[in-house]
């Protein structure tokens, strides 16, 4: 599997990762090599095999729908890059 630079640009956009033009060539080659490794999966016959989502085949546990967490907004927001009156601030999205 050989990716083009444009493929990598698209993947990087989907992943919301800035990849500079300088990095693009090396990243394209690295990702192509990794996908070549991954493609060895094609040698396996998986006809009729169930996909395995959990090592112990457990189903997700459910709990009662009740509030268990305390309000720790001030503590958590103290870690944020930019907040104001309990809100997380980002660049303007609505003109």
């Amino acid at each position: 599997m050989s990716l083009e630079r444009s493929d990598v640009e698209k993947i990087a956009h989907l992943a919301r990762l800035a990849v500079s033009d300088d990095e693009l060539e090396a990243v394209t080659s690295d990702l192509s090599n990794i996908l070549n490794l991954v493609e060895q999966m094609e040698t396996a016959d998986t006809e009729g095999v169930e996909p395995m989502a959990h090592p112990l085949h457990m189903t997700q546990r459910l709990r009662e729908d009740e509030a268990t967490e305390q309000d720790q907004r001030n503590l958590f927001q103290s870690l944020a890059p930019l907040t104001d009156e309990g809100l997380y601030l980002v660049p303007r999205v609505i003109e």
């Binding site: 999966m41 094609e42 396996a44 998986t46 095999v49 996909p51 395995m52 090592p55």
Partner: peptide, 10 residues
């Protein structure tokens, strides 16, 4: 495909 092979390995 990977999840199926995971089953085979298991």
């Amino acid at each position: 495909k990977a999840q199926k092979i995971r089953h085979l390995i298991s």
